[in-house]
Write a protein that binds this DNA or RNA. Structure first.
Lengths: 338, 338
DNA sequence: CCACAATAAGACAGCGTTGTCAGTGTTAGC
DNA sequence: GCTAACACTGACAACGCTGTCTTATTGTGG
């Protein structure tokens, strides 16, 4: 039924081992032999069985992407980046949702690796910082790369952006626009990036000599609803902020919705800023001023590192960018002084 | 290194075949033997090699999900639904993006199946209607289920919603709100659902005796930008529509953005409706009146059919729901008559 | 022209399971 | 108490490749 390496070898008039050599681009195959084999492969539309290659060889031609992130846009971009790199390398990608809070995380990660024999793993935040998952990977000595990890890890490569600086950039931008009371919505507590963005916000305030006010900082969960809930509270303050900086776009969209409902015009009465520059940022009104996180590139680069394009442990920082759109503007009080 | 069935058999004091029987829940294993084996499996944290099972047996414990859809929200829900079902069944899911317009589609689908030996395939629109892909699947006699196919296919199961009725429902709702001039933005031409939604729109107009006006219908591509572009044209008409029904939420968000930019208040001066009820529908302002498409359930059910929960070819229709939110309201002229 | 390395290709075992078949207990019926 | 049917278990080949080892062929320097 199935076309196997045997069929190819028969058609090409060589041994199966020689076919295997051609398939794996090994040395010591004469050019004309190679061509005969390749012609046979094409004629028979032969695709080698991954299962057999995995079982017999040292590679499985598969990698896993493990994630636990509730922003569909973010995940989509991550998947796309890893996928693109895999396609170039002729490797399959196993997308694996996980729950970092689950007690069975370690078992799931371990089982995945044992069952599939994947050649490597890409970890996306916050799985990057789940000790249980990391321990399983290390115990098996399987290569892995982390995307936007929150913790340092000398032994494995990672790809990330400077969350502190990015949040600092955004906050500074708002300050430069005349804002003094800037609300901040923290990201999901599972994500280390959440702390870093908060830190960047505080650092910018400090440097500018703007007093930090705990009232203006609210927790969030990286989703629309939590952003809206936080905005509800911030905007009900007796002395509400003139700008709100949310730690991701989804939450910023929540802020916008509340502003609209309360008939607070954006950006005239309230500036709103997001983070990530997902498709959502341009799909809401007004379009969000945000930080462009090179998510897809992060993922693409991470997968590239996994395939050993560079040797040794590499920590690569990718550049973010402040994207100014319609959701932010001069502080309202400021307008009086012009 | 790796824990194998041999290790388990040694610890349990049985043959590897008996371990295999327990693993596969076959008959003819004494209860106490089964327990001994299960204890050994647990003690050794044994996970059977998928590669070996695939090679030796008739099942691969893997299915593939093939999609080509540019709405991240939609794909996310589809993946989630299939994934949930797979998890219940203890089967791995291979997510495979594809390009229905690509000339290599058939080769990619064929290669995927031959390489991975997947037990079945889930096709999401518009791959459901790509003849090249279907032919490859049929040639191999591999079971597959289609999610929201546009064409009939007697031989395989499918799961879908009634796009015609849903579009009819929405259009009727708008008519009932007093709208006479209702713009319509068609979906991506690759998707059969696009035609059906257009048909439902026309059917509702006909039934209500509202004249169909070709001017009010614009093509789109299921993305934000094409929705905005269509809205731009519709709203520049000398006699613009009082409502715009976009064939999905992404395009409806584009309409909202244009309305905001042109300072047309929604829903007072313009009603906007979407389709799908993705997360986006609730993340924009005002939140979109839309059709709730049971995307996740569609996917979950499709995967269930693949695992043969029911025998024979099944075509299951899932119920949609009209979700009325803030983006639609009475037609403006209508207000005068109240 | 010979020794020796480099190149080229095949034979065969083995990866970790499942399928098949054979063999051994165990029970039921008369 | 004997036989047939059933329940249970194991031996062994096979799945489709790659790794290792062996053998043959071709080049290369002195």
């Amino acid at each position: 039924m199935r076309v196997t390496i045997k069929d190819v070898s028969r058609v090409a008039g060589v041994s199966i081992k020689t076919v295997s050599r051609v398939l794996n681009k090994e040395r010591y195959v004469r050019a004309d032999t190679r061509e005969r084999v390749e012609a046979a492969v094409k004629a028979l539309k032969f695709s080698p069985s991954l299962a057999a290659r995995t079982l017999a060889g040292r590679r499985s031609f598969q990698i896993a992407l493990i994630y636990d992130n509730h922003s569909p846009f973010y995940i989509h971009q991550i998947q796309e980046g890893v996928w693109a790199q895999c396609k170039e390398q002729g490797v399959r990608m196993l997308a694996q949702p996980a729950d970092v809070a689950s007690p069975t995380l370690a078992a799931e990660v371990g089982g995945l690796i044992d069952e599939t024999h994947v050649d490597g793993v890409i970890l996306s935040s916050p799985v990057t910082d789940a000790p249980a998952a990391l321990a399983e990977l290390e115990r098996r000595g399987i290569p892995f790369v982390r995307i936007s990890p929150g913790t340092n890890h000398a032994m494995t490569s990672s790809v990330f952006m400077d969350d502190v600086q990015a949040a600092d950039d955004m906050t500074t931008h708002l300050i430069n626009e005349g804002h003094k009371r800037i609300g901040f919505i923290i990201g999901h507590p599972n994500h280390m990036a959440s702390d870093q963005r908060l830190f960047g916000y505080r650092r910018a305030l400090d440097r500018a000599g703007v007093a930090f006010e705990p009232n203006l900082v609210r927790p969030g969960l990286f989703d629309f609803a939590s952003g809206a809930a936080a905005a509800e509270i911030l905007l009900s303050l007796s002395d509400p902020p003139t700008a709100i900086f949310a730690s991701n776009d989804d939450m910023a969209a929540g802020v916008l919705a509340v502003a609209h409902r309360k008939d607070i015009s954006v950006p005239e009465a309230l500036s709103v800023a997001g983070f990530d520059d997902t498709e959502l940022a341009s799909a809401v009104w007004p379009p969000l001023t945000t930080i462009r996180q090179p998510t897809r590139d992060l993922a693409y680069t991470a997968a590239g590192l996994l395939f050993g394009k560079e040797s040794g442990v590499v920590h690569r920082r990718l550049q973010h960018e402040l994207i100014v759109r319609g959701s932010t503007g001069r502080a309202p009080s400021d307008a009086l002084h012009t």
